[in-house]
Write a protein that binds this DNA or RNA. Structure first.
Length: 106
DNA sequence: CCGTTGATTGTTGAC
DNA sequence: GTCAACAATCAACGG
């Protein structure tokens, strides 16, 4: 059942005095295949659509991304997976955090 | 054991 | 500095 929820990621900015800390070290996850894909295509897309704004590029980028074959996404997914690994390290360090004395926390 | 959620990632463009 | 569609993600937690 697809959760037709447009990522409830709302304004992910500095909360006004909000003490809603999810994670102490907050190990940012790795990037997404789309992120890597966008990194390469963004130039190409804009190249084919010079002068267009994000609205266009974003959509074109998305449809193009899906236009790729699984094997074509491999390099992107590979990077995504590699980035995920990166996150894993942070995650580990995050889990390790607490053992060593923190420098300063406030 | 299973599934949900939330948080996050990066692009551009403009104010 | 922030947000917005676009897409993936996937790790953590709970009962």
């Amino acid at each position: 059942m697809p959760k037709e929820k447009a990522t409830t990621r709302k304004s992910k900015k500095a909360d006004a005095g909000g003490k809603k800390k999810k994670d102490p070290n907050a190990p940012k996850r790795g990037l997404s295949a789309y992120m890597f894909f966008a990194n390469e295509q963004r130039e190409k897309v804009r190249e084919d659509n010079p002068g267009i704004k994000f609205g266009e590029v974003g959509k074109i980028l998305g449809e193009k991304w899906k236009a790729l074959s699984e094997k074509q996404r491999q390099p992107y997914e590979s990077k995504a997976a590699a980035d995920k690994k990166r996150y894993e390290e942070e995650k580990v360090a995050y889990a390790n955090a607490g053992d060593e004395d923190e420098e300063d926390e406030d």
